[in-house]
């Protein structure tokens, strides 16, 4: 009896990590499968073996299949994986920050704010006959994210309930989207056509320089979040408790805002606004590892977000091929029900 109890205690102490690892492994396998499917499926069908051969042969091959995979599908799939992970992590950070399970960059209007600033900068730069560099897009998006985040923070000080914060965020998002639409409608530059396409949310048109830039940003931020998992865990019990165990709370808050803004800025700059991934993926990850301890959730979050976006992009590309859906529409179809379930569960408590 005592031995059994002691054994249970041990399981409680050590079980979390092994469970999280098992979940990560399963998700990783799913991600690999979807990634390969993303490379194989499309208007030019290729077998997995063919894809492997092409990738092994390097980008030098000039055949159509090789060109499609190296120039279109591979960068796009990698971008979907990285940005999915970024969205998910950003959502997890914002949920921890606001202690609200349905906070994410899209719902709080941060993506839309980033989009607005990118649109303004793009119109100015393209109008001057220049080309937008990836860094410039991300920089603009980061500025937009921070601005919106600051605005949402101001609101959050005034509102007492968590649902009001979400409503306020959604309103901010609408205002920014409306402003972006005005800009797109009135700036009749030829290049603005791209802007319109981008502003709906899509992973199409990914290029290798973009991918390289995104990879550096997202992986660095992912490592940063993982390194922050200890103070984040303390912060989950609320600011006073975090302070009482020695966390520098204001420093941590600043870091959370900066990192989550940069992550959502990456997504906004390259894929436009992608909805609900930031809520659905962290939620699935937490359910999967059966904990919300950041040490376990951070890797699971990254992987789940990547898998979610990879899958959604596959659906967006292939469901009505050759017509391509916006990825945001697909993520909404899969993500929104999870959000509704979350809200219902919150009410029943």
């Amino acid at each position: 009896m005592g031995g059994a109890a002691r054994g249970k205690t041990r399981a409680g102490e050590k079980g979390g990590a092994s469970r999280a690892l098992a979940f990560d492994l399963v998700v990783l396998l799913g991600l690999a499968a979807l990634f390969v499917a993303n490379l194989c499926l499309g208007s030019v069908e290729t077998t997995p073996a063919e894809v492997l051969r092409i990738i092994a042969a390097g980008p030098g091959d000039t055949s159509t299949a090789a060109q499609v995979i190296w120039q279109i599908r591979l960068p796009r799939a990698i971008e979907a994986v990285l940005l999915g992970g970024a969205l998910s992590l950003s959502g997890f950070l914002l949920q921890t920050f606001f202690a609200n399970p349905i906070a994410d960059p899209f719902v709080l209007g941060i993506s839309s704010g980033a989009k607005l600033v990118v649109a303004v900068v793009m119109i100015v730069v393209l109008g001057a006959g220049q080309v937008m560099s990836p860094a410039a897009s991300v920089g603009a998006a980061f500025a937009g994210s921070l601005l919106t985040m600051g605005f949402v923070l101001l609101i959050s000080r005034r509102v007492r309930t968590q649902s009001m914060l979400i409503v306020a965020g959604v309103m901010v998002g609408y205002i920014c989207s409306a402003a972006t639409n005005f800009l797109v409608a009135f700036a009749d530059d030829q290049s603005i056509v791209n802007l319109d396409n981008w502003s709906r949310g899509s992973f199409s048109g990914a290029t290798w320089p973009d991918v390289a830039f995104i990879a550096v940003c997202v992986l660095a931020m992912g490592a940063a979040v993982f390194a922050l998992s200890k103070p984040l865990g303390a912060y989950q019990l609320g600011e006073p408790y975090a302070q009482s165990v020695g966390v520098n709370v204001s420093g941590l808050r600043l870091l959370i805002v900066a990192v989550s803004s940069l992550l959502s800025a990456c997504v906004a700059a390259f894929a436009g606004p992608v909805s609900f991934v930031g809520i659905a993926a962290p939620h699935l990850a937490k359910r999967g590892v059966r904990s919300s301890r950041p040490l376990y959730v951070t890797p699971a979050c990254l992987l789940t977000g990547a898998t979610f976006c990879c899958g959604c992009d596959l659906v967006a590309r292939t469901l009505f091929s050759p017509v391509e859906l916006s990825v945001s529409a697909v993520t909404a179809v899969f993500g929104a029900p999870i959000v509704i379930a979350l809200m219902l569960r919150g009410r029943s408590r």
Binding site: L237, V245, R290
Partner: peptide, 20 residues
């Protein structure tokens, strides 16, 4: 404190913060 998917052990373990 409002928590999500945290066991009581997780909450107690948070007290070890200054030692880990």
């Amino acid at each position: 404190p409002s928590t999500e998917l945290l066991t009581c052990r997780d909450v107690v373990e948070a007290g070890r913060y200054p030692f880990t």
